[in-house]
Design a binder for these strands. Structure first.
Ligand SMILES: NC(=O)c1ccc[n+]([C@@H]2O[C@H](COP(=O)([O-])OP(=O)(O)OC[C@H]3O[C@@H](n4cnc5c(N)ncnc54)[C@H](O)[C@@H]3O)[C@@H](O)[C@H]2O)c1
Ligand SMILES: NC(=O)c1ccc[n+]([C@@H]2O[C@H](COP(=O)([O-])OP(=O)(O)OC[C@H]3O[C@@H](n4cnc5c(N)ncnc54)[C@H](O)[C@@H]3O)[C@@H](O)[C@H]2O)c1
Lengths: 209, 209
DNA sequence: AATAAAATGTGAAAAAAATCACAAAAAATA
DNA sequence: TATTTTTTGTGATTTTTTTCACATTTTATT
């Protein structure tokens, strides 16, 4: 099934393959990909089977072909632009990161309501939130990142949706409500840290110190 | 079962409950929590059932009791300190964030190999990586965050493990290898964005025009 | 006090995901 | 060319997770 975790695995396979390709690998086996992605080889083959990706019995898979196949399935034939709403700690960290390019992702602008954040001349320009609609429509942006304080998240989201954005990565703890056809991925750093605490505490109790 | 997604849900319930408490709510029903966490009410009750949390038939749950129960299960009776390794874009964003306190989380120091990052006098001090062991041992730190470049991730991880750290949040795309008893949570922002692209593209093709 | 209404708690059922296991194909070897 | 070895591809099986559905309990109402 084309569920989230399956797609996340495909992305991991693709990243592992890109590294193998950089090392001039030509062939790869499901076992290798399994190790790289932290799953079983049967899982790798099953995932490929679901998406109709085939290899060569006894010969494994051609690295180049596999990357092409996965890139096509994952819609990464071309580059995609994201905007960031909320140019604070997280927003800035994302805008300054130079590693997205190699994944075909570009952060093309930031938006904020704090005038001290505006910087239309920067490498990644920062504009007033009121300019978002115009910018998104003109540049046909379809993806955005929400990095505003929690209380402003739903409002920022609605501005984005109304401008035509179809997919967002939400860093706030808020659970956004919007149209069915908008994809929302949530990252909650607090709960990530809290879950680590939980599992370490459990290991302490059971695994015996 | 006490698996990751179940624990993540409990954390979401707890966060929703803290907000309800702030609004002076006394009672809450599984339906309310379901809405807040984006799951079904049966899921909420099943989760509680697994952990032996009970409410009052017809009367729902007492907000205060529930928070206490969940906090106990989730091991959040006291505060926990994290260190950050790699004080770059992401590392700094985390160290400057002032919202962790309310979850009982404190980022107590940062470590880097770049001398220009050292800042022992800062609100959250930044030290040379070589000081990590001493600091972690002395302060009995058990949790850390990895925000170094990918190539340095495994090395940084090993320094942390050897100092006694038991749980890490890893922002690099690297798949860390270490002892069984160390908890590793991975956040891969690239694949998060890429998966959004995938699902929006799929929705485009199937869902409509 | 009897009846009705509302919400929990949980086994049973269903759905989803992962693993197994092995025939089929391809390559290597004899 | 025949045999052996290796790895894929996938139906069947198992495991895990979620949902269903309803008896049970509690509160409210008459
Ligand atoms: N920084 C972290 O490490 C961290 C950790 C956990 C969660 N978060 C969450 O991520 C989000 C962002 O955190 P942060 O630390 O970057 O916050 P921040 O306060 O540093 O930045 C928020 C930015 O959003 C801007 N803003 C406020 N309202 C806005 C609006 N309506 N439209 C556009 N911009 C607006 C502010 O001017 C500010 O620049 C928060 O919801 C926070 O809860 C952050
Ligand atoms: N910033 C983002 O938005 C973003 C997005 C996706 C992924 N990531 C990943 O997160 C990680 C951090 O990204 P960033 O943008 O913060 O990087 P960065 O380059 O801004 O910061 C990395 C820091 O780590 C330090 N460092 C290098 N080697 C070290 C070592 N061995 N020990 C201790 N410190 C060391 C560097 O001096 C630097 O200060 C990277 O692995 C990156 O792939 C970041």
């Amino acid at each position: 099934m084309r569920n989230r975790s399956c797609v996340m695995r495909l992305l991991r396979y693709k990243n592992a393959l890109l590294k193998l390709k950089a090392l001039n690998f030509v062939r790869v086996f499901s076992d290798n990909l399994a190790d790289a992605a932290g799953v079983t080889s049967a899982q790798v083959r099953k995932d490929f089977s679901i998406f109709g990706i085939t290899g060569n019995r006894r010969g494994g898979y051609q690295v180049g072909d596999l990357i092409e196949n996965l890139s096509h399935i994952l819609g990464k034939d071309k580059d995609y632009e994201f905007i960031v709403v909320g140019v604070g700690n997280i927003g800035k960290a994302l805008m300054r990161y130079d590693g997205f390019e190699k994944s075909g992702i570009k952060i093309s602008a930031g938006f904020d309501i704090d005038p001290t954040k505006y910087d239309p001349g920067a490498a990644v320009a920062v504009y007033d939130l009121s300019k978002l609609n115009e910018y998104v429509v003109k540049n046909k942006i379809r993806f955005g990142i929400i990095a505003v304080p929690e209380f402003a998240a739903q409002q920022a989201f609605e501005v984005m949706i109304n401008s035509g954005i179809k997919g967002v990565l939400n860093f706030t703890p808020a659970r956004l409500k919007g149209p069915e056809d908008c994809i929302i991925n949530n990252i909650n750093l607090e709960t990530e840290l809290e879950s680590i605490i939980y599992f370490v505490n459990v290991a302490d109790k059971t695994g015996g110190k």
